[in-house]
Design a protein around this nucleic acid. Structure first.
Lengths: 340, 340
DNA sequence: TTGAAAGCGCTAACAG
DNA sequence: CTGTTAGCGCTTTCAA
């Protein structure tokens, strides 16, 4: 019961601990005969090494930590998947913690990670992370990579949001729209600002002057906010196309349009962002797709690279921008013929 | 750098290892003076215990393993959240692995879990799990709890699907419908069968004879399958209400209805199941809600209980049924007046 | 009340 | 080619 140890294997095979080790690690010289005896014993006992003992000896836990801020946004789940898969492929396990915002939580998680000697930490969060805790990780020699939100100079993986928003808005301009609204998130975070700027740039390039009347900034990414924004636009502004800065916002917009009986794309073109929900909505939406899994993978790779070569003091981190890709599904069409 | 050890703490405090241990574990007698010295040293060095060493000594890893079969169904993510939260609250970390179906994967994950000496394993999967691997865990003294799909006699946490489907279908009967279709998943798994049976029972109780014409069984839970099933029903059967066995199927049904311009609930009542997507769709759907987080929590609790008192050989496991709750949002109304 | 010491299971350097 | 041995950091028994 419990579990066989290397000792048991050595005894059963009638050799020394060291020989067992050599067979297991395929290094050093072992006679064919002994090798076979050891392999037979391993099989017979179902020997599985105790990784705690290995870690204690090697200080190499083959675990990564992942701190994830809870968010209704499906994107985070997809990123998480990318992280998990990439880590597994590289022989790492991932210890994930989802934060819900209770006080002291970050502190506890970081302590846990240090205690378990994870080899690196990923942070996927909409909020900034406490610098003191980051320093604690750094002191413990644990590199950190941030996903989605992070101050410049940190190792980070981000969406090319400016480009993505530009790309999305441009598709609306190219469809012939002149009256294009934007439903985005407020706040002055980089991501939100870039999406707005990308949208504006596409308009300007198409000879359209952006107007604040067309820009609705929501409080959060909930469908309710999308609904409200769409309602305001529909009643007071009358755009022919709407670009939602997140699929969840687009879903709320669709709920409003459904209620008033407006059809997409006949009465209004609608474009989402992040492509998390777009295939599930009625109608399926065009959406600016984010390579969420790729982000997770890139973050893991950067983290492992950084472990090999830590940042020199004062050296700026690496920034990886993940490209977006417009997915079209027919929710964008020409402006309704009645309109200007 | 690296990290301070108990040894460092002892040296700095000028006491022995054992005394540090006593202070840290709050057991045994320590003079007030020494206690303070140790506490000061711990603080000064930022000492964090090395859990690998603790595990090696105690064989208590305070980790649980979670094997999750990848599924586009959002339900699994919610269950996962429940597991993670409940575990964290009880002082456990969770090592999660998502399976994608590559061969040998289960084997690898189980080996990993044994190697890391997790104290219990949760399995959330639509498929059955290889019995040989379960035995391997059992041999290693690691209890297992299954979520959602599992053979009778195993420790398991399941949705009360019969009741849920009954409850859902009954709400359609009570709204006055007589022509109620069901879009479910095929296959002969228990869950799928129960949902179908619950639906039939509600019909019969309402004096309606179930008919195979009204029951569409899909290949998988994708919206595409929902779309196809809805199309067939709409064109050839003409129900006044449709009960979809998963919100993803309902989403596909809505896409078809949107395309043909049929409105919910005016032309057709639509009811979803699992409540994962219902608030995001247009219109928001009534759906039979599953307490996914509660399931995760229940599973963790059962697992920890089972660790305390292992199953005697031949003793049947515990089965926990999680209740469902109908969430109404206005997608179910009376049958259209034109219909019979 | 305190300290010394014996491992937990594994790795790797070293001597045979 | 093989075996012995000294820890990794922590817990805990036992003796002082």
């Amino acid at each position: 019961m419990g579990n066989a140890t290397m000792h048991d294997v050595a005894k059963l095979a009638g050799v020394s601990l060291a020989t067992v080790g050599r067979v297991l690690h395929k290094n050093g010289y072992v006679s064919q005969e002994n090798r076979e005896k050891v392999e037979a014993a391993v099989k017979a006992l179902g020997y599985i090494p105790n990784s705690a003992a290995q870690l204690l000896k090697n200080s190499c836990s083959r675990m990564l930590g992942h701190i994830l801020r809870f968010s209704p946004n499906l994107l985070f789940g997809q990123i998480s998947r990318g992280v998990d898969r990439a880590a597994a492929e590289r022989g790492y396990s991932v210890l994930s913690y989802t934060k819900y915002g209770s006080p002291g939580e970050d502190q506890r998680i970081v302590t846990e990670f240090i205690s378990r000697r994870v080899e690196g930490v990923l942070i996927t969060s909409l909020q900034e992370f406490d610098q003191g805790l980051l320093d604690k990780l750094l002191d413990a020699g644990i590199p950190t990579v941030r996903i989605e939100r992070a101050p410049p100079g940190a190792d980070r993986v981000m969406v090319d949001d400016f480009q993505g928003a530009y790309q999305g808005a441009r598709s609306l301009v190219e469809a012939g729209h002149g009256n294009i609204a934007f439903i985005g998130m407020g706040g002055d975070s980089r991501v939100e600002r870039l999406r707005l700027l990308g949208y504006r740039k596409a308009l300007e390039e198409g000879g359209i002057t952006p107007s604040p009347r067309l820009e609705r900034l929501a409080e959060d990414y909930s469908p309710q906010e999308g609904y409200r924004a769409m309602e305001a636009l529909w009643r007071h502004v009358g755009p022919t196309a709407v670009f939602a800065g997140a699929d969840t916002l687009a879903s709320g917009a669709l709920q409003y349009l459904y209620q008033v009986g407006a059809r997409v794309p006949e009465d209004l073109s609608l474009l989402g962002y992040d492509n998390t929900l777009a295939t599930l909505l009625a109608p399926p939406l065009d959406s600016v797709g984010i390579q969420a899994e790729a982000m997770g993978r890139a973050a893991v790779d950067l983290l492992l690279r950084r472990k090999q070569r830590p940042l020199a003091p004062g050296e700026p981190g690496e920034e990886i921008l993940v490209a977006t890709e417009l997915e079209t599904r027919g929710s964008v069409g020409p402006p309704p013929s009645g309109s200007r």
